[in-house]
Amino acid sequence: MVCADREPALWRPDLLPSTVILDAAPAGAGNAPPLDPDLWPHVLNDRLLSDGRHLVLGDEGGSHSLWLRETDRGKPLAYVVPRDDGIELRSRATQRLEQRLSGVSPDRCPGQFRPTHFQARRLTLLLRILDMLQGERQSRPSTHEIARQLVYPRLAIGRGAEWKASPERRRTQRLIEEARSFMNGRYRFLLKGKLAGATKTSGPK
């Protein structure tokens, strides 16, 4: 099993705008210093593919995702920032990497995305709901079981007609729908630093 903290996923740059893209520096930029990622203290993931080298570099202030389109060692590189709807995030990620390469401390170069305590708890709850839903078909849990085990573990919830008419059932159903939509693509909002689009941020009801 691959541990996400030790070997994080490699995302396509169009899905993860915080990916820093580097390519061969154009003529006249010969003074650009070379970048050797092998000298980085913590390389969490490293794959050489047909379109270049994809890496995740560990850092105290948050990891850096890189796509090196030019893989020849020692050649000067230039940052490539596509002009699309992720340009602001791409620019911040590029600036942050450049600052770290220039010796700026991690505490002055924070990562792109940090959920609040409540947001992290809600995301964890959605993932736990998905884990329960992905069990064997014959043992898939009912809405009542999900509510009892995950959503309201400290609350004695009713059964039968009382449960069917309860606000706890309606909230659990909404969470199940949200978890499924998260699995079916909504998680991509997180990759773009848009937590509000990935999951609701209102408090518990």
Rank of each mutant, 00 (worst) to 15 (best):
G86L: 00
S65F: 08
V80T: 09
D72F: 12
H117R: 14
T71A: 06
D85M: 08
S65M: 03
L126H: 05
L127K: 11
D72W: 12
L125W: 03
R69V: 07
D84Y: 00
F118W: 15
Q95A: 15
L101P: 10
E70L: 08
G74K: 00
R92N: 06
P110H: 02
P82R: 01
V80G: 02
P115A: 10
P76E: 05
T94F: 05
F118R: 15
Q99A: 10
G86I: 01
R114H: 12
R90G: 02
F118C: 12
R73K: 10
R96H: 08
S102N: 14
P82C: 01
F118K: 15
H117D: 15
V104A: 07
R128E: 09
L77R: 05
C109N: 08
H117L: 14
K75I: 11
L125S: 01
R96N: 04
L126D: 03
R122C: 01
L66C: 03
P106L: 06
Y79Q: 02
R108V: 05
G74D: 07
L127P: 04
E70S: 07
G74H: 05
T94D: 10
A78E: 06
G86Q: 00
R128Q: 12
L89N: 07
S91Q: 13
T116W: 05
G111P: 00
R96F: 02
D72M: 11
S105T: 12
D85E: 13
C109A: 11
R73Y: 12
D107N: 14
Q112A: 14
K75V: 13
T116G: 13
G111I: 04
D107R: 10
Q119Y: 10
T124N: 15
R108W: 10
F113V: 01
G74P: 03
S65W: 12
L125A: 00
Q99L: 12
P82I: 02
P115R: 00
E88K: 14
R122I: 01
D85V: 06
P110A: 01
L89D: 07
A78S: 08
L89H: 06
K75L: 13
P106G: 01
R92G: 02
P82V: 03
R73L: 12
L68C: 07
G86N: 00
L126N: 06
D84A: 00
G86Y: 00
D72E: 15
L123G: 06
G74W: 07
L68A: 00
T116R: 07
D72K: 13
P106D: 08
P115W: 09
I87H: 13
R122K: 14
R73A: 14
D107C: 09
E70K: 02
V81W: 03
Q99M: 13
T116K: 08
G103V: 10
L101W: 11
Q119A: 12
R100Y: 09
P82S: 00
